[in-house]
Design a protein around this nucleic acid. Sequence first.
DNA 1: ACAATAGTGTCTCTGAGACAATATAAT
DNA 2: ATTATATTGTCTCAGAGACACTATTGT
Lengths: 258, 258
Amino acid sequence: MQSEQQYLQNYDPSQFEHPSVTVDILIFTVSDRKLRLLLIRRNEHPYLGKWAIPGGFLRMDESADEAAARRIREEAGVENVHLEQLYTFSDVNRDPRTRVISIAYLATVPSGKLHFLAGTGAEEAALFSIDGITGESVGEQPETGTIETMVLTGPDGELISGSDLAFDHAGIIRTAVQRMRGKLDYTDLAFGFLEDPNSFTLTELRLIHEAILGHSLDIGNFRRTIKREYEAAGRIVEQGLEKGSVGRPAMLYSFVSP
Amino acid sequence: MQSEQQYLQNYDPSQFEHPSVTVDILIFTVSDRKLRLLLIRRNEHPYLGKWAIPGGFLRMDESADEAAARRIREEAGVENVHLEQLYTFSDVNRDPRTRVISIAYLATVPSGKLHFLAGTGAEEAALFSIDGITGESVGEQPETGTIETMVLTGPDGELISGSDLAFDHAGIIRTAVQRMRGKLDYTDLAFGFLEDPNSFTLTELRLIHEAILGHSLDIGNFRRTIKREYEAAGRIVEQGLEKGSVGRPAMLYSFVSP
DNA sequence: ACAATAGTGTCTCTGAGACAATATAAT
DNA sequence: ATTATATTGTCTCAGAGACACTATTGT
């Protein structure tokens, strides 16, 4: 039996063929009362010209979390946003070039922080609103069945269906939206979309919830629920009244991260 | 601009260095009213002699789901059990040999189907009950903070603490148990542990819930909840009374998968 | 005064939880 | 009869949802 040192010296990591590992980032934002997702238009084969989720190869000196943070910095110019691992996609033929495993991440970004137009420049990027997603399966596992209708709308009113996207990206988007909807009401997910977490109204927060869920919520019930859930625990605190708005001024709140 | 065919021909997958990708399987079962996990004792460096979650390299011709199914067949001799992706662990230094990314899976196996003693033979395997897990964070993301007390008990009463396990496996186990507890009451997870899903009593099902949660449940309330949730939807159907038991015979049920 | 938005109150219904009571078998 | 287990019933309380009402600003 060899010692641990001998073992580590003799270990040859190239004795097996390894798949490529990429990190894909779903950069979500809420603007104009709609949930939107940042897509880029591919300027390479395969799927040349198709819209795709931004991503990149995992470097040997960074964890997947770090790679995701780096890519979102490169792609959207933002830092310190909420970022969580979504799922790892590993079907053998999901990329026609070679074996690629993709660790998908989900980011929630306030729209004011997004600077993708001033980004890499070479590649075209756009925010698509997610208009039609049907089906409501629970749980973390991605939909295994067929991709039903999913409709995305681009900035010029450009309509795209899920099957127009590159790779298996339609399924990944569906998984992400379901995940967000499922955990919206028992996590702090929605707060990640606030333009200023230190000064927001409950109406702003409700509009974010509505954008993610895809339907409207009762105003009174939403207030009651949120205030019971967060104010009693000291997680949101009043910051005085809004100034100069149309209608009755709203109370401003500040979010206290746990 | 080259054509797609030219592009695919010229593509060289070895232009980047790739990490190793493994699949780790958390094989859970319930026996003797306890939640138990299959661990193997490492017979190689690093962590020689330590207990670890079974796993293996992902082959180039199989998806992670397929690799997980293959490994559980090899390790525990079972097929067609519930298997779900848990999380992908990718810290740079989690394996001292080389860069290893691990896609962790969670399997729920009825204890009668487990045949790990007749398995590979060379390596020692054992079921450990999970006795002490503190902390109840919600959400799918693994605990980022410190690993608090986690106590495992082996078949001979052998006590192990989380820090005695190989690699970052203590954290992976904690993530898995939290995931199971979190989704227990809105998924069919518990049914995966039934010895015979076509003939079980509500008491058997309740004992599985209690083992996963780590505390007892009210008998009457459990019945009411389960029957409302499943019987009305036709997901469980009565199969006649149990025979030859002590006490009043229980109604047998059959689980109808969706 | 009126429009517009913020915020409160109320009613009903459902489900969770605690706990008591009843039913049916073996011994 | 007694023990052991299964099953049902009852009471209370908290939260979700529908909906009507009140409050405070600008114009």
